[in-house]
Nucleic acid binder design. Sequence first.
DNA 1: GCGCTAAAGATAGTATGCTAAGTAATTCGC
DNA 2: GCGAATTACTTAGCATACTATCTTTAGCGC
Lengths: 168, 168
Amino acid sequence: MDPAKQHHRHPAEYYTDPENSIGYLARILFRSFSRLLEQGTLTHEVSAGQWRFLRQLWRGDGITQRELSARVSMREPTTVVAVKGLEKAGLITRKKTRDDRRKTFIYLTERGRELELKLAPFNAEIHELATRGMTDEEVETLQQLMRRAIDNLAEANAQLAAETDASA
Amino acid sequence: MDPAKQHHRHPAEYYTDPENSIGYLARILFRSFSRLLEQGTLTHEVSAGQWRFLRQLWRGDGITQRELSARVSMREPTTVVAVKGLEKAGLITRKKTRDDRRKTFIYLTERGRELELKLAPFNAEIHELATRGMTDEEVETLQQLMRRAIDNLAEANAQLAAETDASA
DNA sequence: GCGCTAAAGATAGTATGCTAAGTAATTCGC
DNA sequence: GCGAATTACTTAGCATACTATCTTTAGCGC
C-alpha cells in the first residue's frame, strides 16, 4: 500500500468527524448486504434489515420478542415490524404460551432455517471484504474498541435517562 | 458447558455479529446527539440529522449540494431533504449562479454560524463520552481501522456497480 | 445549430428505526 | 384479594436514508 497514492475521492479530512465515519461504515455495510441479496436474486426472500434478525435467530430461536430485540440491539417497535415481515415471508412463526400470555416466542420455520445455508457464504464474503488487508489481530482490536465505545455511550445514556426519570 | 447456563444473559455474545455492533454504535451515537439536543432545549433549532450536515458546513460553506453530499457521505436525495429543512430553519441559504444554473451553492446564515458555538461543547462531550477510558492512540487506531473498512467496502461496491453497468 | 450525452437537483416511493402512547396480562403491596 | 405498578407487546406518527426516475441545464461531436 503506497500511502502517497491518495487517489481516492474522499480526502482524509472528510473522515475527521467520528459520527460521520461510523454512520458511513454502518450504511455502506448495509448497502453491501443489500447488494449481495440482489446479486443472489434473494431480494424477494428477505431484506437486508430482516437478515440481521435472522442472524440472531440462527444462533438460537424460541426466544421472546423482547429478547430478540435485545440481541439485535434494537427497540421493540422496530422488532415488531421486522418480525411481522419475517412471519409474512414464512421464515418464522410466533407462538404464545399459556404460561404467560403476554409473551410471544419466535421460532424459525423450516424455510427460515434453510436460508442460513444460502446466506452464510454472503455473510462470509462481506466480512472478508470489509476486513481485507487487516490482520486477525487488527480485526479483533477494531471489535474491542467499538464495543468499548458502545459500552461507554450505553452507560452514559442510561444515566441520563435515570436522571430524567428522577426529575419527572 | 452447562446448557442451562447458555441461556444466561451474556451480552458479550451479542457483539459477535460485526454488522450488529457497527450499526448499534452508529445508532447509539445518534441517540446521544439527540439526547444532548433535548437537554439543551435545542430540539426546535436543529435535529441530530441536520447537525451532521452543519458540521461539514462549519468546516467550509459555499459548496454545491453535491459536494456537501460527498462530505457527509450521503446520497443526494438525502441531502435534498436535509438542506430543505436547514433552509426552513433559517440556518443556511441556497444560491444559484449565472455561471451554471444547474448548481446550487449552500451558505451558512448568521444564525447557522452562531449555532456552532452553542453546539461545540456538546460535540466535545459526545466525543469524550464515547472514548472514555481510551488512550489517544487507541482512538486513532479505531478511526484508522474503521476508515480502512470503509475504503474496502466502498471499493468493492464501486466494482460491483461497474460490473452491473457493463452487463446492462 | 442539432442531437446526444452528462451533470445537478428534485420527486416518488419504500425501508428502517425511533419516541410516545396505548392495550392486555401479570405481579406486587398491603 | 384488590388496586396499583410492571411487563410484553402493539400502534401511531415521525425522521432518516435509500433506489429509481424525472427535469433542467450544460457540454460535445459534427
